[in-house]
Design a protein around this nucleic acid. Structure first.
Lengths: 345, 345
DNA sequence: GAACGGCGTGGGAGCGCTCCCATGATCCGT
DNA sequence: ACGGATCATGGGAGCGCTCCCACGCCGTTC
């Protein structure tokens, strides 16, 4: 066959063609300023002509930077949350990463075994940093990642005083806004359906609800607090219990759209009209909310923006390389939510 | 501790500790049979004790296998399709990949520019193969990937005689099943709302609809065919037109749940009851279908299974290494759909 | 005019692994 | 008992890149 022209061109071949040394080509590729204009042009031309693309494995091996970050999604959660959530997160992350030439390694963690394997991957130097979606209260993963010397950013926090870097939305604010809205429409017996209370996000929304009730001068009634689990069925169950315990309720703040959908079904079966008899507000502003009948008032989280912010934080830390983490405050971002009013309230 | 963390252990150190040569350690790691039981045990012990994890970059560089595959999702599509779709696809792929120690590189392609960049990545030897979600009719990407010498598997086909390997669901079957069901319930004027007709999936469902109508001995009436675009708004628009053109229709087969949801709203506004006046069937069996009022009858696609199958096909081709693609038939998988009957029909 | 500092440059020395070949030990048949 | 297979084994030779040091060459400076 014809010569050794098999395989892709290497940096060495580019150097030869451009009439310079390997070092110079490397400098051009990596945007070093210490290259003469002339040499740079020659190299760029050679790269163009040869269709050269640097071999990533070689770069990583020699330089120990991988140009990839991992996004970890615990599979169990993936089913609970309104599903579009993760897609939006991914979209935001991907958009931000795209601008910096980084790759996204997606890992769904289903079991302990897969988790262990994931830690292996981290140790295998496959990524420069880790993004973690929806961590549970007692999840040790963030610490494990740090021990491996990798920066990590969480989506949501595990506790109020989360030590790791995170991006969260203003969950308490969401609860307050929902209740204020309902109270503003004259509702006095406002109930809530919470998420699972071992998750910080659920607690925070409940706290916001309580603050909102107090702020409206209504006095908190624990009979009006029903516990759900972010699923439709959980929403049904909680709604039934609430109707039992507090048949005089005239509004419900459900901590997720999906639970609101479940609750809506129970209300219909109970002959309560929405919004005439019972006003309903959800959280997420998902497709479900728009398509419900009547369309559901919901507190929107800026999900895609959360993804972007996570990626941005991680990239900043990667760039800042030096251990000197500028300011812890930067590492804790809480994004605002927004009430979207529709016909259910 | 301070001090120079001598970094992670290398294969060489494992060899030293186990009292064998590098080659032997490498053989153990790669599961070669040509290793004595004794040596194997010694090496495994050393790996355990040192917490050794092979450096991926080095393996790739030396062996030119990357242990990663890319999943490409055109961003434009991501909005059109019922969103959970992609998450399910990802879930299936991830599950299958997890069992074979491969990593998933997720790439959302938003623009021509990002597409070009993606091709660069492929050329940079970052992945062993490519999975492509929802390709458009004229998408040249599959061919580009092949030119780079990488195997590719599509989700859905571009045309009826797609040359590339693909996994699709039985879209025509979905249309037939929906119509048969509606006809079975005594509906005679069955309309359809299609997807965008430049997509094969939309055409196939329409074909199935026509076949179903013919099979029921109803005679196809083009007035009953409305064109949508897989969005809720498109569904509304098509439904309005249908009501205009064929006010006597008594059933609608919408080619997606989301369009069905849009249509349902228009029907309500028009004072038509579902299912009494007009029966409604969608496709996807998504959360939207379950949460609609009344809950929507829908044709379910085995989305997660499609993901699994895609991954399996790609892995098989990667394993088969040799160019001898066994049988083209294996490369074209069409999975069955299933009608889920609810109250809307 | 000699000494000096800076800058662009070339290329050696690895990074940690797989591939593969040569080696010595073991086993077989005759 | 001996030549020839068979087998586990060690280790050299890269894979393609980045890092970094040493080398000229230039313009300054005193």
């Amino acid at each position: 066959m014809s010569g050794r022209h098999s395989g892709r061109p290497t940096l060495e071949q580019v150097a030869a063609r451009a009439g310079v040394g390997r070092g110079t080509v490397s400098r051009v590729i990596n945007g070093s300023p210490r290259v003469s204009e002339q040499a740079r042009e020659a190299v760029e031309r050679a790269i163009e002509e040869l269709g050269y693309v640097p071999n990533q494995a070689a770069r990583t091996l020699a330089g120990s930077r991988t140009d990839a970050v991992a996004l970890v999604i615990p599979e169990t959660e993936a089913r609970l949350f309104a599903e579009p959530y993760f897609l939006d997160i991914i979209r935001g992350i991907s958009a931000e990463l795209g601008e910096s030439d980084k790759q996204l390694l997606l890992t769904l963690v289903r079991s302990e075994r897969e988790r262990a394997r994931f830690e292996q991957y981290l140790a295998a130097q496959r990524v420069d940093g880790v993004l973690l979606a929806s961590v549970h209260a007692d999840d040790p993963l963030p610490e494990r990642v740090r021990e491996l010397g990798l920066p990590v950013v969480l989506n949501g926090r595990r506790t109020a005083d989360e030590p790791a870097a995170y991006v969260d939305s203003d969950n308490a604010g969401a609860g307050r806004a929902a209740v204020a809205h309902l109270a503003g429409r004259g509702r006095r017996r406002i109930a809530t359906i919470t998420g699972p209370l071992d998750m910080y996000v659920a607690r925070a929304r409940l706290d916001g609800y309580r603050e909102g009730v107090a702020a409206a001068g209504l006095g908190v009634d624990e009979l009006l607090v029903g516990t759900g689990d972010f699923t439709e069925e959980g929403g049904r169950r909680a709604m039934r219990e609430l109707l039992d315990r507090a048949p005089d309720l005239d509004a419900v703040f459900a901590a997720s759209d999906v639970m609101a959908a479940g609750a809506r079904g129970v209300l219909r079966e109970a002959g309560r009209r929405v919004p005439e008899d019972v006003a309903l507000v959800g959280v997420d502003d998902s497709a479900v909310a728009r398509l419900m009948d009547p369309p559901l008032t919901s507190v929107r989280q800026p999900i895609e923006e959360m993804g972007r912010t996570m990626a941005r934080m991680l990239l900043r830390e990667l760039a800042g390389a030096g251990e000197a983490t500028a300011d812890v405050r930067d590492a804790h971002q809480v994004l605002p939510t927004e009430l979207v009013v529709r016909d259910s309230s």
